[in-house]
């Protein structure tokens, strides 16, 4: 489980956080309008949402996710 401050520091330094939720790969990063979250289901279209750090943190706790730093797959 990642601490809220660790998540914040990593995202603010430009890093991304990846995790698997059920069978989807998800990735979060920080943009000007908030924390973006991309969901890539195994079958189905990619979805993108804008939330904030609290919502990402609550998601991690509620859904028991393991977050890890990822390389920017968009580069």
């Amino acid at each position: 489980m990642m601490k809220r401050a660790e998540m914040e520091a990593h995202l603010k330094s430009g890093g991304r956080l990846g995790f698997f939720c059920d069978d989807a790969f998800c990735e979060a990063w920080l943009a000007e309008d908030g924390v973006h979250l991309a969901i890539l289901p195994k079958d189905g279209e990619e979805m993108e949402f804008v939330g904030d750090l609290d919502k990402l943190y609550e998601m991690q706790i509620d859904l028991e996710l393991s977050l890890f730093p990822t390389a920017d797959r968009r580069q």
Partner: peptide, 12 residues
Amino acid sequence: LTYDVLKSEMDP
């Protein structure tokens, strides 16, 4: 992992 649920639960 459906759009409606994610959008709702991620809403600040």
